[in-house]
Design a protein around this nucleic acid. Sequence first.
DNA 1: TCCTGTGAAGTTCTTCACAGCC
DNA 2: GGCTGTGAAGAACTTCACAGGA
Lengths: 210, 210
Amino acid sequence: MPFRKNISNLTVQRLSCYLRTLRTLAENGRISVSSGEIAEKVGSTAAQIRKDLSCFGSFGKKGHGYNVSELITTIENVLGLDKKWNVALIGLGRFGQSLSVYKGYRNETFDIVAIFEKDPSKTGKSFNGIPVYPIDDLAKICEKKSIVLGIIAVPPAAADEVIQKALDAGIRGMLNFTGKCGCQVPPHAFVKDVNMAAEIETLSYYLTRQ
Amino acid sequence: MPFRKNISNLTVQRLSCYLRTLRTLAENGRISVSSGEIAEKVGSTAAQIRKDLSCFGSFGKKGHGYNVSELITTIENVLGLDKKWNVALIGLGRFGQSLSVYKGYRNETFDIVAIFEKDPSKTGKSFNGIPVYPIDDLAKICEKKSIVLGIIAVPPAAADEVIQKALDAGIRGMLNFTGKCGCQVPPHAFVKDVNMAAEIETLSYYLTRQ
DNA sequence: TCCTGTGAAGTTCTTCACAGCC
DNA sequence: GGCTGTGAAGAACTTCACAGGA
């Protein structure tokens, strides 16, 4: 994979969105697509799409656009989706429970293979077919199951402590649903804050100031 | 509220994060706080905090920092959180069900007062204490209950149609959990895409390319 | 003619650095 | 001394515009 430029954070996020659109196109039997058409479907501009795609090579055909299946393969490869990621869910409260059943991501790529929970009454059994372990077993199980991704769904007050435990267990990427934002991690690790309160408060702002 | 500058999208999102930190400080009895301390807690820089706050006035005390409770009140006012928003949840599949019980946002500000669902076997009763209506009643109920915010939790293929219905019903702000991104809406309306697949795929990228 | 790929220009966002005030 | 508020500088991102290939 020729990485001709640094791919920015924003570009990475958009690639994921392009990918979804391309998969839909592929399901509908489409062979090729132009940057303008992708732009229309994802609510962006043709120039933005081309700039983003140009970060990792030139494989469009001038005058004809991009080959849909080739572009899907390329983006999957860039994003590292061409392998399977074992994921740990930490926290089996109400939101953790719902995340364990939510399949918004592709199961063949991201698979929750272990759940960790503090409350001993919940551990030692399965939830939704996934074994539930005490949180103290994090390091042991993560190593055994090759887990490097985590979904953190504990209360905000426990966020820092749990994230630290996850780091110690070798988890290097986390989706943080705790609501606590900006938790510090070392440079080799990544935490993405997913914050529904912030999202809905942003809407409140726009509806108020308009 | 003196709006001295346009507040950018990014600033608005950060305000929400500052607010959460400030509330925690207030609960701990803190009276004042410096931009540097907020920055440390949210993982940002002091200059960024000051720039963001300067958008809507100057109320820090030089040499002393900001008054915590005053800043909370101001940010709540800026974000429009000083009133109650009635919210509609559209889609009562598994993820919709979990969103209806998830209280990641403040209930005194955002209150789900109606659920809408296509499947007639689910309508006409309550779920988690919230009445479930057929989706065709959207306009009628939204007007009756003064609903202008919506949480969309239907399958991606239905996203465009449901968002259009919500717009027609007078809903002007939506959290879009469908996974379909970039749905077009008129300029007076706002859709925020919340995309767990994109978030986790971004992590995959960073762990792969490192 | 159509559409890509890409420098250049334009815009937006962040960081710097310091005057000013407590 | 400590910390805010803010122009100015710098960095990052987006859009423009056009050369060039199919």
